[in-house]
Nucleic acid binder design. Structure first.
Lengths: 192, 192
DNA sequence: GTATGAACAGACCGACAGTCGGTTTGTCAA
DNA sequence: TTGACAAACCGACTGTCGGTCTGTTCATAC
């Protein structure tokens, strides 16, 4: 059962790759299943064999985006021992990741609407928010209840800053200002 | 032309009121034009006479929600002279407003996706973000560039906190914690 | 009275997501 | 070698949806 499984895997991955491009360029609503089928040169039946629906295809795309962002973050903090320093590095890396159109459109704009806020945050909890809470707890001397709220505030704030950079006319200088603002925000949240 | 104009106005407002309920209960995607027509007992032609499309109907709904939230905010700060105190009161009022399911679903979840992040923020700029920036400038001694970023961070952070309250099991105690967290956040953002 | 145009009516259209009864094809046991 | 089996795939079809288009009604202006 190797040739068949491999072929299936290849089809699935190909669909995810093609869909990633289309979702990024035209958004979730602007991308029809039809167009994915055409671009991937795959039949309707094949797609619906691998994914129960359009939102499942989107979820699969989102998953690969998470993987990439997570890997970038892990690379940025590897070897660091000071929690505050690592947190800071991770935050700046995240802002830079969000410059990627894929991250912006798929993770920040479409994901909450497609999955619903609840499911979106639950997914985030498992992949990034959880780590962020641990990092905040280690890096600062905050009330545990406050840590939860501030983790959300920090993540939402960083996302907002990232979106501001994305729509700025001069993205290079905006990125400089944005990173300073992000670092400042982090400092303020961690202060006693 | 008074009877006709009045009748048109009434139809329009009736559509907005009915649509507000359906959008809140089922979200934008989950609400079909068909269902609005049925619930409002209005014909297709009538609806499309008043609104060029579904998103325009949504925009009209959003507008009335903004009006209500703005009025609540204005009432909360009336008579206050200290900018910092007024800002604080406005922020807490906003968190309480966001407990309203209409505000949550229409303003926080659907609006960015339906209008697109860019148009959403432009609308917000005119109605709330602009005032928030002025208030931040008056209340703290922040770098003007930083004020812009922090206004966005504050608004996004407050929204996130409001959403956390909304999905909490015990909303009453969550609201208490959330308001404390919001006040703390504001203090930290305003510090020199 | 008649012209005008805002308000409304509802049949109709194309596009879309999703379904369903098939067909192909790799695998494995007899 | 063969026949059963199931994963992978195919594409015609369906129901629903947002939006269009050709009228019809009727209050008002002249």
């Amino acid at each position: 059962m190797n040739k068949k499984i491999d072929r299936g895997q290849a089809t699935r991955e190909h669909l995810v790759a093609v869909a990633t491009g289309l979702f990024t360029e035209h958004g979730y609503d602007g991308t029809s299943i039809e167009s994915v089928l055409r671009a991937a040169e795959v039949s309707r039946g094949a797609l619906y064999h691998h994914f129960p629906g359009k939102d499942a295809l989107f979820a699969a795309v989102l998953d690969t985006v998470y993987d990439r962002v997570e890997a970038d973050g892990a690379k940025a903090v590897e070897g660091m021992t000071d929690p505050a320093e690592a947190l800071r590095a991770a935050c700046l890396t995240w802002i830079r990741s969000a410059a990627d159109p894929v991250v912006r459109q798929v993770m920040l704009i479409d994901a909450p609407a497609v999955l619903g806020w609840q499911r979106w945050r639950e997914g985030d909890e498992a992949r990034t928010l959880g780590k962020l809470k641990v990092a905040l707890r280690l890096a600062g001397r905050l009330d545990p209840v406050r840590v939860d709220y501030f983790a959300h505030v920090l993540l939402a704030g960083l996302n907002e800053i990232a979106m501001l950079v994305a729509r700025a006319d001069d993205r290079v200088s905006a990125a400089v200002e944005a990173e300073a603002a992000a670092a400042d925000l982090l400092d303020r949240l961690l202060r006693a």
